[in-house]
């Protein structure tokens, strides 16, 4: 276990909990930005350099800038909310979250501890990837040869999203 990954994991959990309880939306947005940066660091440390770069550029760059821009455009300040008014919602949310966490931990326990097997059945082991020219080269090659239809469809989806966002933001609804 790498200690650097452990440190990044602890920081990102602390930032996520701060995001959950922060009153100011800009605090929450900056905490989410921190979580995304820590995730990019973890991607880089386990050797996924292309995904780490995309995470930094698209997620931490573009999406979070959009969020912070919206918060500042709408001039959102501290929200005056109190969870105590609806204890049923509070209790059911905690129960659902705890249930999901328990389920995932049980599944991970089943996967890693009860049936520990050699599940590295793919052909892209680290040695093969290094021989083929690195993580970014392998992923890009697969993206433009094996998955080129998905790539084109995703670019079309992005175009539709651009047009849809402009139409939605400019139109005056009655």
């Amino acid at each position: 276990m790498s200690p650097v990954i452990l440190i990044l994991a602890v920081i990102s959990v602390i930032l996520a909990i701060t995001m959950l309880f922060a009153k100011n939306p800009i605090t929450s947005a900056l905490c989410l930005l921190g979580v995304l940066l820590m995730t990019a660091g973890i991607y880089g440390l386990i050797g996924e350099h292309l995904i780490a770069t995309i995470q930094l550029v698209v997620y931490a760059g573009a999406i979070m800038v959009l969020f912070i821009f919206s918060i500042m455009l709408l001039n959102l300040t501290t929200e005056s909310e109190d969870h105590k008014k609806e204890p049923l919602l509070y209790v059911s949310a905690i129960a659902l979250g705890g249930g999901v966490l328990t389920f995932i931990i049980l599944a991970l326990n089943e996967h890693f501890l009860k049936h520990p097997m050699d599940y590295s059945f793919g052909k892209f082991s680290p040695e093969v990837i290094a021989q083929l020219g690195g993580n970014s080269k392998v992923l890009s090659h697969a993206l433009f040869s094996q998955f080129y239809v998905s790539f084109e469809v995703i670019s079309l989806a992005l175009l539709i999203a651009i047009v849809g966002a402009v139409v939605l933001a400019k139109r005056k609804f009655d």
Partner: peptide, 26 residues
């Protein structure tokens, strides 16, 4: 195991953020 546990914890916190916060942006 560490990364999967981190993903599980972040997923739970994300569910709580979606369910508990009142702002649409949250």
């Amino acid at each position: 195991v560490l990364v999967q546990t981190l993903a599980a914890v972040l997923f739970t916190i994300g569910i709580l953020v979606v369910l508990l916060r009142r702002d649409t942006i949250m």
